[in-house]
Computed example of a mutant assay.
Amino acid sequence: MADPAQVPPDVRELVDAVEHPVRRRDAETLLDLMSRATGETPHRDGSIVGFGRYRYEYASGRSGDAVAAGFAPRKARTVVYLMDGIDAHREDLERLGPHQHGVGCLYLKDLERVDLAVLERIVADSYRTLTAGTYGLRAREGGT
């Protein structure tokens, strides 16, 4: 369970408002896991619980900053954001357990069914990649 003193009130409010008991339990687990994996304190970014920020600049010239690691407890499943792209984590994803994914999102229905050590490694690797300097790839280009 995340140290209550380290969870800002707006993040606590978001997690406590999750109605589905499995999503709420998984959100508590992810608060701990992502805090360890990133060394960051959680912050709220809309409906996302974020950890740290990264700077991106694409070849098109578009640039900005975004959450470096994060999750969102959605109604149907929890979303873990991997903005360096799913392909960058292909080998670990084979060992993760039941999941679905998009280009930069990992969808998990129940964290008790996945290998949390593998998930923590994926989050840590993604965070390290994104925060190593200005990141220049879009999620669909990551890991290639």
Rank of each mutant, 00 (worst) to 15 (best):
Y58C: 07
E91R: 13
P98F: 05
L96F: 08
D3G: 01
F51L: 05
V123K: 01
D10P: 10
S60P: 05
T131A: 10
T38K: 02
A37C: 10
A132I: 08
T134V: 15
S60L: 07
E112A: 15
E94S: 13
S63F: 06
R23H: 09
L14V: 01
V80R: 02
C105A: 15
R62K: 14
V123P: 03
D10L: 09
P42N: 07
V79K: 00
R24W: 11
A132D: 12
K75R: 15
P73W: 00
T78M: 15
G97I: 05
R121M: 06
D16K: 03
V18W: 06
E19K: 14
Y56M: 01
H43E: 12
V18N: 00
I86Y: 02
L30W: 03
R12S: 14
A124Y: 04
Y56G: 02
R140Y: 13
L31N: 01
T38H: 05
I86T: 09
S63H: 11
R138H: 09
L93H: 09
D115S: 10
R138Q: 14
L130W: 01
A27H: 08
G85R: 01
R74T: 07
R23V: 00
A88P: 00
V80Q: 04
S63Q: 12
R12H: 10
I122Q: 01
K75H: 09
G102R: 12
V114I: 15
K109P: 07
S126Q: 03
G64F: 04
A139R: 00
E28L: 13
L30H: 01
G39C: 12
G52Q: 10
L14C: 09
E13G: 06
K75T: 15
G85S: 09
